[in-house]
Simulated scan of single mutants.
Amino acid sequence: MGFTTTFVIAIFVMMLGTLAYQGMSRTLVDEQASINDLHEQWMKQYGRTYADDAEKERRSQIFKQNMGFVEKFNSEGNRTYKLGYNEFSDLTTQEFLTYYTGYEKPAHYSKSSGIKSFRYENFTDAPTSMDWKDKGAVTPIKNQLQCACCWAFSAVAAVEGITQIKTGKLLSLSEQQLVDCVMDNQGCRGGFMDTAFEYIQENQGISSEENYDYEAMDGTCDTMRSRNPAARITGYEDVPTNNEEALRMAVSAQPVSVAISVGEEFRMYRTGIFSGGCGQTLNHAVTLIGYGESEDGNKYWLVKNSWGETWGEYGYMKLLRESGDAEGVCGIASKASYPTLSTA
């Protein structure tokens, strides 16, 4: 399908809006702007280069298809969220899911240490809204890059949160240690948050990111650095399955690791309360750091992702809460767990 001049101008104006959203200035182009011009503009912003002209042409076509998808979605109106452009706009959906997700429960996993009585079951003091970022329990947005270890970022964010809540110290902890050292997981090929929590508990802690920095690739466990813990946990617990109210009780007390199902709309999310366009199976892991309600009465979860600040609302997402489905939007209530820490 060809792009008319009017369509291209509309796309470019929308793209400029994305750039302005990120605090970057751009100059307007004339009415003869082509799809290639827009791709070139995008390449400059994100520092993208290609191996040869053939690869550039292939990426340009993918970029064009993604542009069409975004423009069509946003033009339909009556939506609670908008899609937009980010550093993943020249990837196919399958390429993106291969490199930037990574939730995978090990087939052999049978441990039950996380299946315990739910400590927040009778929690009656949960506020109507919560944002652990505002309370100083959330480190800045990180980027897993092309390593399918979202599970490590989800688990680490939850441990960072409970550590700050219990000790008053906000520390950036090491995802790379989990990638290298959690033998029950597969590093950059996928993993499970509960096995990460078990490793941290059994290892007597986890190192700081400064001590064991992120490399976005599989490596050999560095026993010297892994024996220098910056934070510890005493265990972990699972949230009752498919129970958003129980999940809210847990999130009101601490950040919580969750598995979700993501697809094409999710990866192109820009702003608003996301209410659909998920994948078919649980394939990604994020951290719930709060919840709230919009002025027009839509309840939402506040999600911390690990795709950098160019995705979503500077790396965060609002996801519809209490949709009516037991598992929640994108399966948000299907598999949730949190680390525990006793300071007594």
Rank of each mutant, 00 (worst) to 15 (best):
E327F: 08
G68W: 02
E215F: 07
G315M: 14
I35C: 12
E76Q: 14
W307L: 01
R248E: 15
L341P: 03
R59I: 04
G114W: 01
N185F: 03
L247R: 09
T98E: 10
S113F: 02
L288M: 04
G272R: 06
L288A: 09
P140Y: 11
L83I: 11
T195K: 10
G272S: 08
N211R: 15
T98D: 10
G102R: 03
T343D: 12
A326V: 10
N203L: 00
I141L: 11
S172A: 13
C188W: 04
K304I: 07
G235C: 05
G102H: 06
S174W: 04
R232E: 09
I260N: 15
E244M: 05
M130C: 08
S154P: 02
Q280N: 10
G312S: 12
G190F: 04
A253G: 00
Q144F: 01
A326R: 12
I9V: 10
T124L: 06
C278G: 13
D213H: 15
A326W: 03
Y50K: 10
G136Q: 13
A126K: 15
P106Y: 01
K318H: 11
N305P: 04
A20Q: 14
S129K: 14
T271C: 03
E55R: 04
W307T: 10
W132I: 11
E209Y: 02
S25H: 03
V251Q: 14
Q45Y: 00
S34Y: 05
F73M: 10
Q204F: 02
F274C: 13
L247H: 07
L320M: 13
C149E: 12
N203R: 01
D194G: 00
T5V: 01
T271V: 09
F88A: 04
N283E: 09
G68S: 09
I273H: 05
A230Q: 04
Y291L: 05
V262C: 12
K111F: 00
G190L: 10
E95M: 09
Y300Q: 00
C330L: 04
F69Q: 05
S261E: 08
N298E: 15
P140C: 07
S129T: 14
T310E: 14
Q177W: 07
R48D: 05
S172G: 01
F96T: 13
R48C: 06
G136L: 06
F12I: 07
A20C: 02
C188V: 12
S113A: 04
V156L: 06
Q177F: 00
G114P: 01
E87K: 02
L145I: 11
S334M: 06
E313W: 03
D90R: 14
S337W: 05
R225M: 15
D134L: 11
K318W: 04
T49S: 12
D134P: 00
E327I: 01
T128Y: 08
V159F: 14
Y103Q: 06
